[in-house]
Design a protein around this nucleic acid. Structure first.
Lengths: 242, 242
DNA sequence: CGCGAAAGTTGATGTGGATCAATTCGCCCT
DNA sequence: AGGGCGAATTGATCCACATCAACTTTCGCG
């Protein structure tokens, strides 16, 4: 990685993953400065353009990474091409899982994304030394498990309308501008096709339900991607969350 | 727990959770004998009849437990009664999650079940002392996460036929009689209604698809619950796994 | 600025699974 | 064995979402 050298010579980046430290939940926040400095010798920062797959399904994993910004989608594909997105990861999530040789799904940048890459070995050595690090990863796994199970309810039991509203709620809850309690404005990180793959629907049904929500005044959409939600409670209601 | 005293006085149970030790993955297998003896002072064994809910959705969790035998279903319910089973747990899975006050779903015994209960405090104290224990729980969480994501593909993208076949494959893979590679015989741990809630279908559709699989010779069913699969590969094929 | 491709929308029609409605089966109880 | 009841099956019909097809919007690019 030639990016490594560059990062280390920028004075404004004294340690790699300063970004992680700044946010809660990043893997680096469990490390002491000395450990962080050690880790930073082996890590590098990388930009990935929207649409680029960086871990293929069934591929072996030789590195792990923190997401610094952007959205990453995790997906599974069946032999005949049917696809299901099984998770979305936002900064500062940690990706790749220690002590497991190969990925059981594909990871692809949904938006332009920056990640901080750690070689597999370095991470596994650190985990052996620092119990707090495993605790942190364990918590992230539990968080992802909760999200996956919530989504199972959505996939199995909700109507198309509720699914689309649930998706919009999910994205709204991850749009950083400090949790507007009532309203929210954000850019959709996914295309209609990707939303369909996340919700177990077709593009057309997603489009129709978005139009319906728009006509009911629950959302406004500009340029396909820019969404305004005037009343998050109404959206949550449409999503079936009481 | 009056059961506690009883267990401690049975000479054939010198430490609680002997059963866990015997199987791989139980929480006790990470403990040294001394730690196990200590833990056993606070733990107790309990039988739960099929159909009994023992952790309600939104209830606070004051104990954790190992499943010794039987099948436990984890489910979520919407306000209007729609239900989704989000996971099945088999022995020797660990249930309840440390450091998290309340359960986000209900746990109910699907079959008659025996569990070994540990008070919340005892477990959390042990975890602080024994990194290996957290490693073990982390691994279980990752396993459950994989299962949840596999099931998301099933819920979102498979047909009713494939869903039912996927379910039967899942149960077959957990029926202990030493992994018959080609064929398998087992009792269904769930009723048709529960299978429907697991698959995001209705009772009638589950029944029709079972009939169809039966008529195609992929399975045989006796007395509603007793299933014979002469060729597991054919079943896997019907489940959409290539 | 205007062309072209990709993405999204909208409409018409088809269909897999839901819903409604009888039976039939399996099991407990005496 | 027989009666009663919940669970499961089977059939008829319906409808939410898929599919197929045409059209429109957005956006990159010379």
């Amino acid at each position: 990685m030639d990016l490594l050298a560059r990062d280390l010579h920028q004075p404004e980046l004294p340690v790699v993953c300063r970004s992680c430290e700044a946010r809660n939940g990043g893997i680096c926040s469990a490390l002491k400065p000395a450990q962080l400095a050690e880790l930073s010798k082996h890590s590098s920062r990388r930009k990935i353009e929207a649409g680029n797959e960086f871990i293929g399904q069934g591929e072996s994993v030789s590195s792990y990474s923190n997401i610094l910004n952007g959205v990453v989608k995790l997906s599974k594909v069946m032999a005949d091409g049917r696809q299901q997105i099984v998770g979305l990861q936002f900064a500062p999530d940690f990706m790749g899982r220690p002590f497991q040789g190969e990925s059981r799904m594909a990871a692809e940048a949904a938006t332009d994304t920056e990640i901080c890459i750690f070689p597999r070995r370095a991470i596994e050595r650190l985990i052996a030394d620092i119990p707090e690090l495993e605790h942190q990863l364990h918590n992230q796994a539990l968080k992802e498990l909760d999200e996956a199970r919530d989504w199972m309810l959505t996939l199995g039991r909700k109507t198309a309308q509720e699914k689309v509203a649930s998706f919009l709620s999910l994205i709204a809850s991850h749009s950083d501008p400090e949790q507007q309690d009532i309203s929210s404005v954000f850019e959709l990180p996914l295309s209609r096709a990707e939303i369909a793959d996340f919700l177990g629907l077709t593009i057309e049904t997603v489009s129709r339900q978005m139009t319906k929500l728009r006509k009911e005044g629950i959302i406004q959409i500009e340029n396909n991607r820019h969404v305004t939600v005037p009343d998050l409670d109404r959206l949550a209601f449409a999503a079936g969350n009481d």
